[in-house]
C-alpha cells in the first residue's frame, strides 16, 4: 500500500514542472502542453484521495478530463487562427489585438 503523501508529492512536482513550462516556453503549443500537465497533476490528487474517501474523487477527475478535452480543442483552434494572422505562434511576437 503506497501512502497518499507520495501521490501528492509526485503531483506537486509535476505541477511545478507544468508551471515552469508555461512560464518559460514561448511556443503556444508548448504552453498548452504545460497546461495539460498541470491539469493532469491535479487529477492525481483526486484519484489518490478516492482510494480512501470513496468514489466522488473519481467523478471530479472524470469531469476534469472532459474540461481538458474541450479546452485543448478550443485552444488549438485559436492557435491555428493566430498562426494564420501573424504567421508565427511565438507568444512574445503576438502582441496586437487588431490589424
Amino acid at each position: 500500500m503506497i501512502p497518499i503523501e507520495h501521490y501528492y508529492l509526485v503531483s506537486a512536482v509535476l505541477f511545478a514542472i507544468g508551471l515552469a513550462i508555461v512560464i518559460t516556453r514561448r511556443n503556444a503549443v508548448l504552453v498548452l502542453m504545460g497546461i495539460e500537465l498541470m491539469l493532469n497533476a491535479a487529477n492525481i490528487n483526486f484519484i489518490a484521495i478516492s482510494q480512501h474517501a470513496g468514489v466522488p474523487g473519481q467523478f471530479f477527475a472524470l469531469f476534469v478530463i472532459v474540461i481538458a478535452a474541450a479546452e485543448v480543442a478550443v485552444a488549438l483552434a485559436i492557435i491555428i487562427r493566430v498562426y494564420r494572422h501573424f504567421k508565427t505562434i511565438n507568444l512574445d511576437e503576438v502582441n496586437e489585438i487588431k490589424d
Binding site: E36, S50, Q51, Q58, I65, L76
Partner: peptide
C-alpha cells in the same frame, strides 16, 4: 490507486485524443 476506469479513460482521451490534436 485502484481507478482502472479513469486509467482507461486517460489513455483514450489524453494519449489517443489530446496528444494527437497537439
Amino acid at each position: 490507486a485502484h481507478a482502472e476506469f479513469l486509467a482507461v479513460t486517460q489513455i483514450m482521451i489524453y494519449v489517443g485524443g489530446i496528444v494527437v490534436l497537439i
